[in-house]
Write a protein that binds this DNA or RNA. Sequence first.
DNA 1: CGATATTAGTTAGCATAGCTAACTATATTC
DNA 2: GAATATAGTTAGCTATGCTAACTAATATCG
Lengths: 153, 153
Amino acid sequence: MTKVKETKFASRRETIAAADRLHSAAIHLLRRVRKQDEASGVGPAQLSALSVLVFSGSKTFGKLAAAEQVKPPTMSRVVASLRRRRLIEITIDLHDARCKHIQATSKGTRLLQQGRKRRIRYLADHLKTLTTSELSKLNATVDILDRLLRDWR
Amino acid sequence: MTKVKETKFASRRETIAAADRLHSAAIHLLRRVRKQDEASGVGPAQLSALSVLVFSGSKTFGKLAAAEQVKPPTMSRVVASLRRRRLIEITIDLHDARCKHIQATSKGTRLLQQGRKRRIRYLADHLKTLTTSELSKLNATVDILDRLLRDWR
DNA sequence: CGATATTAGTTAGCATAGCTAACTATATTC
DNA sequence: GAATATAGTTAGCTATGCTAACTAATATCG
């Protein structure tokens, strides 16, 4: 028995080709889905930040900026816009007056969930042409991607 | 025999759940990959337009705007920036002086392909932790998505 | 205790990217 | 040849990203 090791991983060439195709498909998919968000009248950065607040609860300013992979001045303006629209509220930390806690208002939560519903419904309207077999392949792949994203870097 | 029809398609609930997960994974994946493009010193709209020109050849202004799903004034500025950087060239149509044909210069082609290489290499560096079995699942799913995107709407 | 350093966030100012409304210039149509 | 349609531009708004320089609060250390 000379074969002691299975080729568990793909060649570099194949990996690159897969990366390329995945990248392109993701770009084109999102470009279409994102158009649905315009109906909310709120920009993408604001929706994305609001989404973090709605799904992971209250966050300090700094943690929100980190979660959005954005520099503090950018988040500062995004938060100010959200506040002007009464989609979030800000409270000052009792123990450290420098820290601000940001949380979604009920109006913000409502707006986000409606937008999300619209976006997902739109995507689902296209996915419904898939067979159950195709859909389960899709789900399996998203499992893989989720793991990849969790362990990123 | 009462069962006359197979349930070829998934329930609405399952479809919505899949759409939601796909959407979220695509957002997070692209957010990471897009960071790699900053190294090129050219913004995302410009890179995307340049990419169309490099891979599908010369385009008239209007077709480029349509391909990028963007309004004419937006494309006007994008093209002007690309031109200032000598990444594209513009020629006037001989038969219709209103029409402008936009094409990538060799500098533009080079810049795009380097950026693309960097981006794809980065993504591939993460995909290489996948087994061949996982990679082929991924490829199968991208096939499905490509078809979906081609027949969109 | 008080000077200094660190941390949290803001302000100012710049570039890119998206839009609409209003414009110019060229072609087409009647 | 006058009216209309088409291709693109200009002006001006909003939003999102950045860096550099700032304020204010806390922590550290002599």
